[in-house]
């Protein structure tokens, strides 16, 4: 597999991570989007673990122990039960695993486009913001002074 040892994970950990990423955000024909286990998205996830590497490793190990064996090797219902129990526990590992997947998934060009957004960084183009109707302030302008005089 192209990501072997990438990001400091073993082949087994990569397999588990890809499996749980696909469970978290599966591909959808209805919304015409890939899953988080898509090759490009998964490569981004693995390369972006950074400060979360330790917690993600611990998360994968917890998932496997909850599933009673290597997570990716279990049948769907075992994995789903383990994933639900894992999420229920909360804490740093759960947060790190979700963040590792979601921060890459929701910056993929295909996914961003599917949301009706432009796949680009905010700078330098920026955005436009409508001025809005400042007459909304009229009732507030008409209020008497609200601050307290301080001796």
């Amino acid at each position: 597999m192209e990501n072997d040892n990438a990001g400091g994970l073993s082949a087994a950990e990569l397999k588990d991570l890809r499996c749980v990423a696909g469970m978290m955000v599966p591909a959808s024909t209805e919304y015409a989007v890939p899953g988080a286990d898509d090759a490009a998205i998964f490569a981004d996830i693995v390369n972006s673990l950074g400060r979360d590497l330790g917690d993600v490793r611990r998360a994968l190990s917890t998932l496997s122990s909850l599933a009673g064996g290597a997570f990716a090797e279990q049948d769907v219902s075992r994995r789903e039960t383990a994933a639900a129990a894992f999420r229920e526990r909360g804490g740093a590992e759960v947060a790190a695993l979700s963040r590792a997947v979601l921060q890459c998934y929701y910056r993929d060009d295909r996914v961003v486009r599917s949301l009706g957004l432009e796949p680009r960084p905010p700078f330098p183009k920026g955005h436009t913001l409508e001025q809005g109707d400042w007459s909304l302030l009229d009732p507030v302008r008409a209020r008497p002074k609200m601050w307290r005089d301080a001796p």
Binding site: M24, V25, P26, E30, R87, R99, L102
Partner: peptide, 17 residues
Amino acid sequence: AIFSDADGRLPWGKDHH
């Protein structure tokens, strides 16, 4: 996505999207 996942508002799986 990250905030709503952490708050349990955003499910994993088919209904996520």
